[in-house]
Computed example of a mutant assay.
Amino acid sequence: MIIVAAAETEAIRAIEVEAIPNRFARGWHCLGLAESFKDGKPHTVNAFGQKLVVFQGENGKINVLDAYCRHMGGDLSQGTIKGDTIACPFHDWRWGGDGRCKQIPYSRRVPLRARTAAWPTMEQDHLLFIWNDPEGKQPPADVTIPRIEGATSDSWTDWRWTSTIVETNCREVMDNIVDMAHFFYIHYSFPTYFKNIFEGHTATQIMKGRTRPDIARPDAEGNTMLGNTSVATYHGPSFMIDELTYHYEGFDLHSVLINSHYPIDENRFVLHSGIIAKHSEQLPKEAAEVLAGKLSSFILNGFQQDIDIWKNKARIDNPLLCEEDGPVYQLRRWYEQFYVNAADVKPEMTERFEFEIDTTRPVESWTKECQDNLARAAEGQS
Rank of each mutant, 00 (worst) to 15 (best):
Y234V: 07
G222P: 10
G274F: 00
V231M: 10
L253C: 04
G227L: 00
A287T: 13
G227K: 02
L271V: 11
H254S: 06
D265Q: 10
F298Y: 12
G274V: 06
S296A: 15
A287R: 15
A288D: 08
R268L: 08
N267V: 14
A287M: 07
L271M: 14
A287P: 09
F239G: 01
S273E: 14
T233R: 00
A277V: 13
H261I: 15
S238Q: 07
G222E: 04
G222A: 09
N259A: 09
G222S: 11
V256F: 02
E286A: 14
E281T: 15
V256R: 00
E289P: 08
S273W: 03
V290W: 01
V256L: 00
P263C: 06
N259V: 15
I258Y: 00
G236N: 02
G227H: 01
S230L: 14
L283R: 00
D219P: 10
I275E: 00
Y234N: 11
F251G: 11
E266W: 03
L253P: 03
L271S: 09
H254E: 15
N228K: 12
L271T: 11
V290Q: 11
K278H: 13
H272A: 05
M225V: 13
Y246Q: 08
I264N: 02
S280K: 01
A292G: 04
L295S: 03
M225N: 07
D219Y: 13
A220T: 09
L295W: 05
H235A: 07
D265S: 14
V270T: 14
A232H: 08
H247M: 05
A232S: 11
L291P: 04
S273P: 05
E243N: 12
L271R: 09
V256C: 05
K285R: 15
G250H: 02
I275N: 00
G250D: 04
N223Q: 11
F251D: 02
H254I: 08
P263M: 05
Q282I: 08
